[in-house]
């Protein structure tokens, strides 16, 4: 069983790898107006438009910092592809 460990606000969380598709570095998003705060926007992943959820907003109450080490975790949502963000 391989787990992916990621950090949000100095707290470590982990995800099972079987559910993860890919990890990408942070990129520029196209913001959605009037979207909830934890929706950071959408971006183009190999030709597919994927929404991004900012986990730090959900967990820590603040948006994640746009650092080089900030990652986006692409997750296989139930029926449709979903993505998560992982701040560092």
């Amino acid at each position: 069983m391989l787990f992916l460990v990621f950090e949000i606000d100095n707290e470590r969380y982990c995800l099972e790898v079987s559910r993860i598709i890919e990890i990408t570095p942070i990129v520029l998003f196209r913001e959605l107006p009037h979207a909830p705060e934890y929706i950071a926007g959408v971006f183009n992943y190999r030709g597919v438009v994927v929404p991004v959820v900012d986990l730090s907003v959900l967990i820590a109450g603040r948006p994640s910092r746009p650092l080089f080490s900030t990652r986006i975790i692409l997750v296989d949502y139930v029926s449709v592809d979903s993505t998560h963000n992982r701040p560092i």
């Binding site: 391989l2 992916l4 790898v17 079987s18 990890i23 990408t24 570095p25 990652r71």
Partner: peptide
């Protein structure tokens, strides 16, 4: 950095 990401993705795929 990119290689790192790639390796990570590779690991995931490998696991999968």
């Amino acid at each position: 950095n990119q290689i790192n990401l790639l390796s990570l993705n590779a690991a995931i795929e490998a696991e999968k």
